[in-house]
Computed example of a mutant assay.
Amino acid sequence: MHKHALPQAGTDTFNDQIRIVLVETSHSGNIGAVARAMKNMGLANLWLVNPVSFPDEASYARASGAADVLDRAQVVGSLEEALADCALVMGTSARGRKVPWPVMAPPQAAATAAQYSTEGQVALVFGRENNGLSNDELQRCHYHIHIPSNPDYSSLNLSMAVQVLCYELRMHYLRSLEESESSPYLEAMVSPGDSGWDVPPANVREVEGFFGHLEQVLRQVEFHRRDNPRQLMTRLRRLFQRAHLDQMEINILRGILTSVQKAVGGPQADTQDKSTVAQSTDEGQEKDNA
């Protein structure tokens, strides 16, 4: 049988204020999959209302590293017990009920949950695998949450539905950290100059030196002709400038060009300092060997 993980210390953080409530889950493996989805997104407050089977080996096997979430799970006999001390209750539901109920998509639900989490526990309630929450259970919710899935195939596995909500909660939490602490949790890193990039961006002098070197080599190999230049260099400029090259990439490219010049026996790097090109060749090789 599973050996229980050490309990985590409880705190009053946003993540601990969000309570994931599963009602009468029939397959214990789904409970484990939910625990994994929660831990992926930093949540650990799981409540189980009258599960058919828990705890058991299937739930812990599906948890795959999130056993601590299952160890902390609260098992109660009714939904009333699970919601009694909550400040806000939100239940997952399909649209189209006879009496319209306040309903929102996951991003808005996450923002609302974050707002109310400062006042107390916020419960996100998920129903049974086969038929969801009953009308009576849904009427206990302040808001309904609708996941806008494909209408031709709208049924989500329980853990998938939980993952969608937990992801939106995580994104909202990280955005709030960025606003308050200027932390780079969500900043993209796509080009030189972005936080985390390993090499500084190439400056204009370095890029222009590369273009001059490139044009020289293309003429030496008779790919680029002075008497009929067309738009070759213009298009190559557009291509490489779109890439936002960093200094190491410039060095590697110029090292390649120097190797081509050596192979064809042409003059080398007459548009730039030869020491720079020599350094670029050495650095490119060193980078490849690393």
Results as ranks from 00 to 15, higher is better:
Y60V: 08
V49T: 08
V75F: 11
V217S: 01
T234N: 09
H224Y: 11
A202T: 00
C166A: 15
Q115H: 15
L158P: 03
D270P: 10
R237P: 01
A290T: 00
E215K: 00
N40H: 12
W197D: 00
L158Y: 08
E181Q: 13
A263M: 11
K39N: 11
L46T: 07
S64W: 08
S134D: 06
A87N: 14
H244C: 10
N150A: 06
D12W: 09
S93Q: 12
L88M: 15
S59C: 14
D68C: 15
L138H: 05
I145N: 05
A269Q: 05
M248E: 09
R170T: 02
E208V: 00
V23D: 08
L245C: 03
V217I: 02
S280H: 01
F210K: 00
N135H: 11
R219M: 05
E81Q: 15
T25M: 05
R242M: 04
G266D: 07
R226L: 06
D68P: 13
P201F: 00
W101F: 13
P7F: 12
Y116F: 14
Q163H: 10
R95Y: 10
R238C: 00
Y153M: 07
M189D: 00
R238Q: 08
I145E: 06
P184Q: 06
N131E: 10
F54Y: 12
A243K: 08
P267V: 06
Q115A: 14
A37I: 10
I31W: 08
E80C: 09
D288Q: 03
H244L: 09
A58E: 15
N131T: 02
D71W: 11
A123L: 10
Q17Y: 09
L165D: 04
L169P: 05
N157L: 06
D273K: 02
G196I: 02
R175G: 07
N45T: 06
M171P: 01
G196R: 02
S275C: 00
D12L: 11
F126P: 07
F210T: 00
P51R: 05
L253K: 03
L169N: 06
N50K: 14
L156I: 11
Q17M: 13
L186Y: 02
A263Y: 08
I20V: 14
S182I: 01
L133G: 04
L253Y: 05
Q216W: 01
L138M: 13
L48V: 12
C86Q: 09
L174T: 02
N251F: 07
A105K: 12
G265C: 05
S59I: 08
Q163T: 07
G32H: 05
S183L: 10
A33L: 11
A61V: 11
D198R: 00
S78N: 10
L165Q: 09
M90V: 04
T13K: 12
A188L: 08
T281K: 02
Q216H: 04
